[in-house]
Nucleic acid binder design. Sequence first.
DNA 1: TTACAATTCGAACGTTCGTTCGACTTCCTG
DNA 2: CAGGAAGTCGAACGAACGTTCGAATTGTAA
Lengths: 245, 245
Amino acid sequence: MPAASLLLNPRSAAAPPRVTRLPARRPASHLAISGSAFSRRRDEILDHATEVFCDKGYEGASMRDLSRASGMSLAGLYHYFESKEKLLYSIQKQTFSTIVRNLRERLAGQADPEARVRIFIQNHLEYFLANQKAMKVLSHEADVLKNGYGREVAAIKREYYRICVGLVEGLGILQGAQFSSRLAVLSLFGMMNWIYTWHNPKIDADAGQLARQMSDIFLRGVFACDNPAAGKVRARSRGKRKTSR
Amino acid sequence: MPAASLLLNPRSAAAPPRVTRLPARRPASHLAISGSAFSRRRDEILDHATEVFCDKGYEGASMRDLSRASGMSLAGLYHYFESKEKLLYSIQKQTFSTIVRNLRERLAGQADPEARVRIFIQNHLEYFLANQKAMKVLSHEADVLKNGYGREVAAIKREYYRICVGLVEGLGILQGAQFSSRLAVLSLFGMMNWIYTWHNPKIDADAGQLARQMSDIFLRGVFACDNPAAGKVRARSRGKRKTSR
DNA sequence: TTACAATTCGAACGTTCGTTCGACTTCCTG
DNA sequence: CAGGAAGTCGAACGAACGTTCGAATTGTAA
């Protein structure tokens, strides 16, 4: 609580998360140091909170639920997170930042437009299924955060969206097409994000296969049909792949 | 409150919604009569509740919010709905039942498999955009209801899903395809339902156009490409349509 | 060992939650 | 007009909420 408790406003929770202008007196081992015991404990709490938010929803989960799940007292939680809102923000920011960072790394090595779209879908679905709970919290509680926190997460989301629009427009097939790249991209996001409502690891394919199948549906669906490049998708989708099965 | 108040359990809210075995003493003008003043007032409240649930989420909305929005006292609300849970249930059940009923009516007149899929998509999107708030509450609060209420809504959902699977399999194109009808249908639902997160009536197309465009993407995407019928989608998707633009 | 910071917690704060109660008013029927 | 049912409400219930506080405990460096 080193920073927040210095402002004596008893109802600071309702106020927007102001940037406290008190850089002095901040304990040495805080926040920035990523491997410290503090930040490791912080991440533990975050993991448990992700699970609870996933199961009961942000509003439906109480700080007491989070306390119980992480095996820490109610007051102890506030040593690591200044509010419930900040907990959700931390989950969303960390999750979204990671997925964007992973995407950029993977895209760096590939120039072929169709392959780049496939990489996008594969990256999204792999991360989605490997971090299902966090991604559900990201998708399902997307407009819970307001003001500063909400804007920051929304900015990452917009960045991610813009990347995807760029990739789809890079296919160069939408000029004369019947639909906008906006519709194409948002339909793709819908397909992918809806997964959290239905995916069952026991009966559904793994991320690699799902990515290939959804890529096929999307690419074939989105190619203007008099475009000669459309054949490429067909050929691709039936060829051998290095991953899975 | 005629039924629930008769069981004297003070914490009946936590208990599953048991079927009260007290059919006598029920006031004459209740529930079944659809045009009565009672059910008209009930529907008014439901409309206001839909708006509040849409904006703040089920857990985030309080009975006091609903009371304020519908211009009725807190206690007055309980004259029409025995609990907050039943309010959500009524919204979801009514919305879902209507969309299924509409679908059945529209499908009755059409035998062509592709046209039937297009009807499904058009029916879904038209209703979705005409009742955006209710559909958001249906989609976003899908697993809030538990036990009896939850099961009943889940049953309608399953019915709706099964209809769609039937239509897609009716296309007769998935035998040798790379993906299951399950994946195809759930991807389609994703595309369609995700709309509530992005649709802006000021900049996006209307339901008719969206339905056509999404149908094109889906049908083209899902057709196995060596299937001669695939050409049909191309031709269709570029032809004149009776509705819109 | 001392001293100070970091960590943890029980207990409480004031507020808001879903729900209930009894009484008051309105409306319809006889 | 009488009388009962339907509708409406203010006030309250106990529980649960997010958050805070001061004290106790632990860890660490001198």
